[in-house]
Write a protein that binds this DNA or RNA. Structure first.
Length: 415
RNA sequence: AGAGAGGUGGCCGAGUGGUCGAAGGUGCUCGCCUGGAACGCGAGUGUGGGGCAACUCACCGAGGGUUCGAAUCCCUUCCUCUCUGCCA
């Protein structure tokens, strides 16, 4: 959520900055208008309440003195009518305000480049050279044409399309990757947490998936509960409605969860293979920092994920997302794209975002700055998506004879 | 899932219609005491909004209602605990 006060005072500046995000900025003007009107109406209401409170306190005094209370009572009856209608006005404005406020995306950081979509993202650097093959490298589903490793058909049988089953060494590799990544992140100072894969509405509002993106979530029938689309939701919401001690910051966490997405908007995209599934494993990084620390911690997270890829021997590149490609809650995002020889292109494998105080304001996560309570900055990033790492290994480590080598660092993890 | 009990400040806990935003304890912060500490003593210590400020409004799980006035009464709902059932 945006800072409403800031919006009232620096409307034009915020409007300009949000333009970068290619979103409906027509929401902004009503937002400002309603917030100002609300302030005015609230003042009126509070004056009425103050009168009601003050005069109500006279009753016991009157009674003690044996005075007649009829006139006072009728005065207050009348005032009460006014309070009732003023309350109604305020409530309506508040509802409208939060309805709009929760749908306005975060403001892009100044460093975010202009652009429409992923075509306009800016490559920051390449890490490792892309591997060369003395044969034509295959896509992962062709390497494993018999589906001895990834069984797509049976995934569909068990659930529906975009589900799959890992078998044999692929199942072991998945498990190895989870453990390796968590250990790697721990060595960089991230503490491990294991959280529920189901979250309530408040949590999803806190991190920004709701109310706007409910269509992409699997909802539990008859309950206000959802399967999590990312560990970012439960891990960040660990601190919802809390005021943290300054010396506890930065909090750096890592967590493995399954993630569930309806992929409602991507019909027809990546229908083949493991790239885009309704359920996938991911090891996530989540950090809670002071505003002063967040940029530095952001870099640490990017480095952590990139070094992880490097340690697996996977060529990749860092990409700074342009305004048009930036997610709803993010102020700044760097994607890591891994080289897939079979597809002959880089594909997203990690996305690291600084949401600054956007989620913190929604989720009311604050820290003590002296006597003041201030909003923290929240950051999240994948390190890494397990399924995509798995196919990256399959494609990058494939041999001419169809076998797949295992990256050295994983050897201890596969028995 | 059924039966019962309960949700109050960082924590414990009092409060059943009128200066209660809330006693008391504990924790924490600051000061005094001390060679230093403990003990003891004194002061401070919830959140959010409005106002330069004095101050003011809201919040006792959440949402409604009754009343001039609600932490206290009524309704709805969520959650927690205990027992029973079921299960890893």
């Amino acid at each position: 959520m945006l800072d409403i006060k800031e919006l009232q005072n620096n409307f034009e500046e915020i409007r300009q900055k949000l333009k970068k995000k290619k979103v409906d900025e027509t929401l902004l003007a009503p937002l400002k208008e309603i917030s100002l009107k609300l302030k005015e109406k609230k003042n009126i209401l509070e004056a009425l309440q103050a009168e009601q409170n003050a005069k109500s306190k006279l009753f016991p005094i009157y009674k003690k003195e044996g005075k007649n209370i009829d006139e006072l009572k009728s005065q207050l009856d009348e005032n009460k009518q006014k309070i009732t209608s003023a309350t109604e006005v305020v409530r309506e404005l508040e509802e409208n305000l939060s309805l709009i406020a929760l749908e306005v995306p975060n403001i892009p950081d100044d460093s975010v480049p202009e652009g429409e979509d992923e075509e306009d993202n800016v490559e920051i650097k390449k890490v490792l050279n892309i591997p060369s093959f003395d044969f034509e490298p295959k896509e992962h589903w062709d390497i494993d044409a018999k589906q001895e490793l990834i069984d797509f058909q049976r995934g569909v049988k068990l659930a529906k399309s975009r589900f799959s089953v890992l078998k044999n060494d692929a199942a072991k590799l998945e498990r190895a990757l989870v453990n390796y990544m968590l250990d790697f992140n721990a060595s960089r100072g991230f503490k491990e947490v294991s959280v529920p894969f189901i979250a309530n509405k408040e949590s999803l509002e806190g991190t920004g998936q709701l109310p706007k993106f409910g269509d992409d979530l699997f909802k539990i029938e008859g309950e206000e509960l959802y399967l999590i689309p990312t560990a970012e939701v439960p891990v960040t919401n660990l601190f919802r409605d809390e005021i943290l001690a300054t010396d506890a910051l930065p909090i750096k966490l890592t967590s493995y969860t399954a993630c569930f997405r309806k992929e409602a908007g991507s019909a027809g995209r990546d229908t083949r293979g493991m790239i885009r599934q309704h359920q996938f494993g991911k090891v996530e990084l989540v950090c809670i920092t002071t505003p002063q620390q967040s940029e530095e911690v952001f870099q640490q997270m990017v480095d952590c994920a990139s070094d992880l890829l490097t340690s697996l021997g996977l060529a990749h590149r860092m990409v700074l997302l342009c305004g048009g490609d930036l997610g709803f809650s993010a102020s700044k995002t760097i994607d890591l794209e891994v080289w897939l020889p079979g597809q002959n292109r880089y594909r997203e494998i990690s996305s690291i975002s600084n949401t600054k105080d956007f989620q913190a304001r929604r989720a009311k996560i604050r820290y003590k700055d002296g006597k003041k309570n201030r909003l923290v900055h929240t950051l999240n990033g994948s390190s890494l998506a397990i399924g995509r790492t798995l196919i990256a290994i399959m494609e990058n480590y494939q041999k001419a004879d169809g076998t797949i080598e295992i990256p050295k660092v994983l050897k201890d993890y596969i028995k």
